[in-house]
Design a protein around this nucleic acid. Structure first.
Lengths: 167, 167
DNA sequence: TATTGTTATACTCTATAACTATA
DNA sequence: TATAGTTATAGAGTATAACAATA
């Protein structure tokens, strides 16, 4: 063992890598929120489906799947579980009976409130390195980036979202 | 089909969710950088190993694995591929012959330069929603958060990293 | 013919456990 | 006994393809 006196404590080469930083933060958030969403099938992903369903039930399953960045076949299984738990339900769109809209049940809406307050705590824990002001700035910038990225995706362009809203 | 005049174009409920935003951005970055790291085994992950090896080769494999958020057994396969491509090599630590340090080869160091310049482009594309100033702010805040989160991880505390530096 | 959602299958990725060698 | 790394196996997660219903 040498003495550590001459060796730098931390050489932050990786944090400068956007992919590394995003990966670290994403994994940390998933881990920190695991308990918060333990009661819901599909974990954090299931929560996002529930949140989407509660806020607006105009999405078709395929649009929802792509918004969440998952395969539509995966969403089928996810919805099966969420429906079994009585949190959401599938209703046929009368205007286009091919697609089904995802609705939150009353019980689902109530559960959502609980999950959200729990997730707030997880979020604060993960972002605890930042001051309140910096945290707001960070979230605001992140939101802008994510929204643009999501809208720019060729599969789910803003146009298609509008189309979907009409359906 | 109704008229879209009365329906809002985008109802941003999901962007307020930290997990959703992080997931969207992370996936977008991975996708945007796919071409940039197509030549390197393990893709973006392989790049991170190479970057770590080139910058400092003091890490043991287990420390490296945890820094990257992957299992140590996964790193074994990753290193096998990187070594086969002649980008890195494993050297036994003379002070403790149980662990092996990961070094970048000369060829690996040269390749790294190329990958980095390519990745810069991917990064700018993904963050194109932000101005130059905002992008700097965002990256700075993200780095602070990721660094703290990574240091706070019980498995790889700052102390252990220092221990590792000595090895 | 094209699209939505479902089902069954196959594949990839990751973790678990057992093993070797060093300490 | 404990740890670093490897290997083989099993499992979870994901995508691919074929199908039925609807447009």
């Amino acid at each position: 063992m040498e003495t550590a006196a001459s060796t730098p404590v931390v050489i932050p080469v990786l944090p400068q890598d956007l992919g590394w930083s995003l990966g670290v933060l994403f994994r940390a958030y998933v881990k920190a929120s695991a308990d918060a969403v333990a009661d819901i099938p599909g974990g954090h992903r299931g929560y996002l489906v529930l949140a989407s369903a509660a806020r607006r039930r105009l999405w078709s399953q395929s649009a929802l799947a792509q918004q969440l960045g998952i395969d539509r076949t995966v969403l089928t299984y996810l919805l099966d579980d969420l429906e079994r738990f009585g949190l959401v339900e599938r209703r046929q769109n009368p205007d286009d009976r091919r697609n089904r809209q995802v609705w939150a049940t009353e019980r689902g809406a109530e559960a959502l409130d609980m999950f959200e307050s729990r997730l707030d705590a997880a979020e604060k824990q993960v972002l605890s390195a930042l001051s309140e002001a910096d945290r707001k700035t960070f979230k605001s910038l992140l939101m802008r980036v994510a929204s643009q990225v999501n809208a720019a995706d060729p599969v789910a362009s803003a146009c298609e979202v509008v189309e979907d809203l009409k359906g």
